[in-house]
Design a protein around this nucleic acid. Sequence first.
DNA 1: ATGAAAGCGCTAACAT
DNA 2: ATGTTAGCGCTTTCAT
Lengths: 340, 340
Amino acid sequence: MKKGRITIKDIAKNLNISASTVSRALNNNPDISLETRRVVQEYANEHKYKPNSLALSLRNSHSNIIGVIVPELANHFFSSVLSGMETIAEDHDYHVIVCQSSEEYTKEIRNVQTLIEARVCGMLISQSKTTIKYDHFQELVDNNIPVVFFDRICTGIDSGKVVVDDYSGTFHAVDYMIQTGCKHIAFFGAAPHLEISKNRKNGYLDALRKHHMPIDEDIIRIADNKQLGYEKAMELLQSDNRPDAFMAMNDYTASGILLAAKTLKLKVPEEVSICGFSNSNISQDTDPMLTTVDQHPQKVGEEAMNLILEKVQNPDSTDKKNKIVKTSLVIRETTRPLVK
Amino acid sequence: MKKGRITIKDIAKNLNISASTVSRALNNNPDISLETRRVVQEYANEHKYKPNSLALSLRNSHSNIIGVIVPELANHFFSSVLSGMETIAEDHDYHVIVCQSSEEYTKEIRNVQTLIEARVCGMLISQSKTTIKYDHFQELVDNNIPVVFFDRICTGIDSGKVVVDDYSGTFHAVDYMIQTGCKHIAFFGAAPHLEISKNRKNGYLDALRKHHMPIDEDIIRIADNKQLGYEKAMELLQSDNRPDAFMAMNDYTASGILLAAKTLKLKVPEEVSICGFSNSNISQDTDPMLTTVDQHPQKVGEEAMNLILEKVQNPDSTDKKNKIVKTSLVIRETTRPLVK
DNA sequence: ATGAAAGCGCTAACAT
DNA sequence: ATGTTAGCGCTTTCAT
């Protein structure tokens, strides 16, 4: 065993035929006699020949590698999305290269450059929170590299998009809490320039409007982690303007709110209702267990990968089938039961 | 803009020099006049030339891609490991291709084949639970593809290994619970053929032995998820042989045990102590919050990637620097305080 | 039915 | 200081 793997040339030499015949035989080209095909394929199997996909890609000027950029790998949502992507890619014999931007704009730029150099044939991207310019994305378009954004999409760029239905996820959750008798519902969101924040806030506002409830800017706050959720909830729950329900940006924030309510000996959900977002694994382990909105991250990943593969395999098609993945409300114990 | 990206040839043609000069200029070869270098590099920058790593890899018969196989991407431990790997790889200009085996032996075999075809220059693997034979791993060794196993290592194969110190993690946790006054400690483990199960059980047993405590096979059970943790704990806690502490295989199991204790109105930690394993995100959201063993998954990933890169860049070195990543006990609320 | 040659993008040995 | 050539592994005209 010399320097690794056996090539077509090796087979050709050992069988005393030409490389092109071997290539054709391996690809079951009908020009080649059945006998030759059999011999070649047998030899290849025996010696565990594997085509060199690097060479193949180079020749076809088309790799079978999809690049994925996520803000954070160690995150339940994104790792589930990635799982969905990998599943679909595997089915289609594509590979997935992953990069994480760590929520840093400059790292994201480097990620994009890296993936261009890696000659990926398409990219799946979820923007970092700190991304402020889109030149690096535009470069992809200019280079004819198909892109699909998912979840944290980039609206400034001509590309495919897969989003979670944040608007209606939030709308339904808030609507539900109103129907269970909540009168004064707070909203804890994230940085307002993100699409996702806007959409969720709009869902919240429209649910209030639907029921002709007043909008109180004082109980609309920015808090998107446990610590902030806890702090802002402590503040509000001890104020004169005490909410009887919270719609949170994610489950961590919700868990912080829950902690605040418990610290203040307020009963959940009797005195305070709480709804999270994500249906992450923590939501079944809080006490009481969190009501939350499931985003079906696996599905997001599958849709995104399907979209990009379509684009990759059919570069001329101009139809942008953007996908919206429906959310579903998972009712557990931090909200009251529905009473008609 | 024709079919995508600019090549060295294009630059050469437009600048009326040869391709090799361009190549050398781009690599800052001192043979090339400063002036030529400047001109070439300027042109390259302006036209956003990016080297084609496919071509490079082919030429060097050495890709800069590391293949990673994990049992499950949507898992806090493995996604954190992956995050650590990506960070190190990025620093060294290597790419990471991920595959998941979904805990299926046959899928794992396919993953290995896929990654061989992708011409990865090294692999990082954590075995699936159902893997029973090692032929597919052996094939890697035969092909001179360096491998490093992490966490769920394969002892039958000559390779690098990075493991969590399961033995001493469990030992210290149990030792700690004994020191806080626990007298009858149950152990909830996973499938006994896994290295990781054996090691943790040994840590448990040795901690008991250290304190000359009897070993009771009746309270050593198999349970490695929330449901099973709940069921087995319900059973034991209602039996005559009631434990006053539990050492669990992971935080989910611990959370099931906690649920059982709460269901039976037993006080945690006064009447029942519980220790999980992983320090996963749920451990801060249970009530009371879980005492657990942090495995430092990010670190596991970093060490594994460092090891494989060393091997890749220095294939002849035979030193197998296996790494053991130390665990640390994270004391929260499901165990009693230490009293001297 | 098979072989020879060229080329995907890049670089290194070998000219000049 | 720069150019020419060959080759990494593969496929695909274009012969024969």
